[in-house]
Amino acid sequence: MTTPTLPRFHSRHAALAALLCCSLFAGSAGAEGTPSAAAPKNKAKTGPQMEFEKHYLVILRRGPSWTPEVTPAVERIQSEHMAHLNRMAESGKMVIAGPFGEQQDPTFRGMCLYKTGTMEEARKLAEEDPAVKAGRLQVEIMAWYTEKGYLAFPKAKPAK
Rank of each mutant, 00 (worst) to 15 (best):
G47Q: 06
V70S: 10
G63L: 05
G117V: 10
E102K: 08
L20C: 07
P35R: 15
E75Y: 09
E51C: 08
K160H: 05
K93A: 05
G101T: 03
A26R: 13
P40A: 08
L151E: 04
P48M: 06
S36A: 15
C22I: 15
E32D: 15
A122N: 05
Y150C: 07
G117D: 14
L60V: 05
H81G: 01
P158T: 01
P7D: 13
A15R: 15
K115N: 09
L151C: 00
L113P: 05
R62H: 11
R136T: 00
I96L: 11
N42S: 13
M1P: 12
P130M: 01
P4I: 13
K54R: 15
P158R: 02
P7I: 12
L19D: 13
P158I: 02
Q104W: 09
K148G: 08
E80N: 12
V58G: 03
M50T: 07
T71S: 11
G149C: 04
T118R: 07
F25L: 14
V58N: 04
L6D: 07
A37S: 12
L20A: 01
A134F: 11
A26W: 11
H55E: 05
R62G: 09
E121K: 05
M94F: 03
Y150F: 09
L113F: 03
D105R: 01
L85S: 05
A14Y: 13
K115E: 09
E75N: 12
A97P: 02
T146R: 09
K124D: 03
E90V: 03
F108Q: 07
L16R: 10
K160G: 06
P154F: 07
D105S: 02
R12Y: 13
Q138S: 04
G117N: 12
E32K: 13
G33T: 04
F9P: 06
A15T: 14
R62V: 02
F9N: 10
P68M: 09
